[in-house]
Design a protein around this nucleic acid. Structure first.
Lengths: 115, 115
DNA sequence: TGTATATTTAACGCACTGGTTAATTAACGA
DNA sequence: TCGTTAATTAACCAGTGCGTTAAATATACA
């Protein structure tokens, strides 16, 4: 392990690119072909094709076949694993919000005198 | 944009490594020095030091100073952004589970006759 | 069979990642 | 001031990621 090839690492790596996240967002609205997915980007078709391969290897999309088109479909299940991992840290960032509330409370107390 | 330097990309990229996720898990139990964090890994100290720099740039840790030690502390707030992004897809993987249920229902129906 | 369209693969360049060892910086303590 | 400990930085290397253009593949259609 520790070589970055475990499932969770592959999924997080796939999400670490704004183009790929935009593609997933587009697919959330329904299936689309490679050409349709590439259209919004100022990037060659091969580049988009390889982004799709990354998403496919992460299990985040599947591809059908319809004549010469390869319709892509969102497969969000692997995102559940990522969310599960992140959820363990929820109390830490919610704890930070508590700390913020405490900070604001202290600030309000001080306001009576100097600021 | 689309160059992978936006906040969310940086956070996801930081999470796309099992060593770094293990470091965060360790820090969830409390502050630790670089040496303490490095101890469980079969990896040189400089390597761990650079993992910490990645986490720091992602805003996931902060570092204090106590004599020659640099205690690291978990800062989970950026994980909230990542979770927010993922949450948008929750209905898709939950929808998949609905589809699975539907599939099982159809399967059970067919079982009466042929299988 | 030949041409057009959709997509992938090949070959290349360049920057970044993640590891190493050796050298450097920072702070403590005798 | 000198030596020890903690950590980072420097220099290097191998592998990977992400983009390009050009060539190959797959399917539809005349």
């Amino acid at each position: 392990m520790a070589d970055g090839t475990d499932r969770l690492s592959v999924v997080f790596a796939a999400l670490a690119d704004p183009t790929r996240r935009a593609i997933l967002a587009r697919l959330a609205e329904g299936e689309a072909t490679v050409g349709e997915l590439a259209e919004p980007f100022e990037m060659s078709l091969p580049a988009v094709s390889r982004h799709l391969k990354v998403l496919e290897k992460a299990g985040l999309i599947t591809r059908g076949r319809s004549a010469q088109w390869r319709p892509c479909r969102l497969e969000a299940a692997p995102l559940a694993d990522a969310t599960d991992w992140l959820e363990r840290y929820r109390r830490f960032w919610e704890g930070s919000f508590d700390a913020l509330a405490e900070h604001l409370r202290e600030l309000r107390k001080g306001q009576r005198n100097d600021e």
